[in-house]
Write a protein that binds this DNA or RNA. Structure first.
Lengths: 198, 198
DNA sequence: AAGGAATTCAAACACGTGTTTGAGATATGA
DNA sequence: TCATATCTCAAACACGTGTTTGAATTCCTT
């Protein structure tokens, strides 16, 4: 499953092939049928395991009443970028699997949305709500959350284009905060801009 | 080439297969070898033709000195969204091909970046520059352009996730301006936020 | 230690893919 | 009209894929 996760994250579901996974894992091809039923079963198992462990070990920071929503937003953005752009020790491919599902959804996307992305998004909405203040309507709040997510996700999905533009997204954890700070400023102004006008 | 464009846009380079394209076009499989050399040759020809015609018929609105940068930004955002989300009459799949190249780059991405995306982005930078005013540094200007592009592109790349969040991106031209207006407000505040702080 | 279940293995299977073939049809120009 | 170049066609080829097989091996319980 480690080998499968690595290869699925690197190549995607279609492009990663069972023979290579099994070679990397040092097991026979028939093992996947026996243990997971099929390639898709293996993929599903990998994704589930990866995001479960990921949620346990790197919980999204909880936004409590009284916290500064601006720093909460920066934390959230920083973590989203890190998850997708940087290979972490514990779950090196969790973010990449999510990112891949966004690009080319398979049957597991629904599960991923429900268990990983929605909770994350929900937390984000609470931060946005605090920033919106009086202008806080559910619809607007949701849209702002989408925009923030979009700003982060694009730096992974659009990586190749950004490289060619001269703005390669950071690949090391140390370089993430700089970009996160910029995105945060941008998003912060964007959100409180709505608050100002109502 | 029409059939190929339609299928490549709908399924992507890998998933679209030559037999289906030829069946849809009513020609023999061997025709692609004779006329384009290979499947990749056909793809390249389709992409090139599609974006050339697209640039001629739907040029990106030019930002002149004296124009209101705020409305120019809205126009630009509206057009980007329309290109990717809505099938147009003249070049129904040009935007989708670009979007597909972002998701899973092939060898044509470079050409697409150089001939389509860079000019578009360059125009966007000029608008951003006008908005930034005094705070206008090349680097910051570029980042802001990236953010705007990201906000638009995400609504196509992340379509499936957005649907599941309850925010399906518009598919008809008539529904685009509403989203464009929202993104514009957000981006506008974000950009002038930088201008305020320097 | 013996029996039986669980697991592993190399090999083959079925299918889809892009590509190639070589003969036939069609258009072109003298 | 005829010869040549251009194009079309159905069929087959070569290869990669996920899956299946049935025997061999390992593991656990009795």
């Amino acid at each position: 499953m480690d080998a499968a996760g690595r290869l699925f994250a690197a190549k995607g579901f279609e492009e990663a092939n069972v023979r290579e996974i099994c070679r990397a894992a040092g097991v026979n091809i028939a093992a996947v049928r026996h243990h997971f039923g099929s390639k898709e079963g293996l993929y599903r198992a990998v994704v589930v395991r990866s995001h479960k462990g990921f949620l346990e070990q790197e919980p999204f920071p909880k936004f409590e009443a009284g916290d500064d929503p601006a720093v909460a937003l920066e934390r959230a953005i920083e973590q989203m970028l890190r998850i997708m752009l940087v290979r972490r020790g514990a779950h090196p491919y969790a973010g990449q699997l999510i990112s891949r599902e966004l690009r080319s959804p398979t049957a597991v996307l629904d599960e991923l949305v429900e268990n990983v992305m929605k909770p994350l998004r929900c937390e984000l909405e609470r931060i946005v709500a605090a920033l919106l203040g009086g202008a806080n309507s559910p619809r607007l709040r949701g849209q702002c959350a989408n925009f923030v997510i979009g700003l982060c996700v694009f730096h992974d999905l659009g990586k190749e284009a950004l490289k060619r533009f001269g703005y390669p997204p950071p690949e090391r954890a140390a370089d993430v905060p700089k970009l996160a700070g910029l995105i945060t400023k941008f998003a912060l102004s964007g959100i409180v801009g709505f608050a100002a006008r109502g």
